[in-house]
Amino acid sequence: MAVPLKVSRAPGVLIPSLSPSTSFARFFGETSFLGKDEVTERILSVVKDFGKVEEGKLSPTAHFNKDLGLDSLDAVEVVMALEEEFAIEIPDAEADRILSVGDAVTYITAHPHAV
């Protein structure tokens, strides 16, 4: 989803080589959302690689603490591993609310800059 940006330019300054159809919005602040299946798959592989989880218990709806047996510190580390995987930074307030694989999927699919 591309959000059109307003490009402010000094009056009288023209950029002649660009055709009128060329949109500046293509170059700045372009956002894209990742698909749910892809995100789920990548999250599960990150959680698996974390090492403290039994593979059999892993599911797209698993709760970090109740289902996977991770303590709150491990959960913090998992969320940080997800930040690394998707090249985003999750603020403290949001990160505290990611308590299950499902929460993480919801957050990351809604994140415009996750890659």
């Binding site: 709150s72 510190l73 913090v76 580390e77 969320v79 940080m80 403290d92 990160a95 505290d96």
Partner: peptide, 19 residues
């Protein structure tokens, strides 16, 4: 980071790990 009074222990943990 925010001042300690505003930071939960988990947020502190996160910031320490990040640092």
């Amino acid at each position: 980071p925010p001042p300690p009074s505003a930071m939960s222990p988990l947020a502190m943990y996160r910031n320490l790990v990040r640092a």
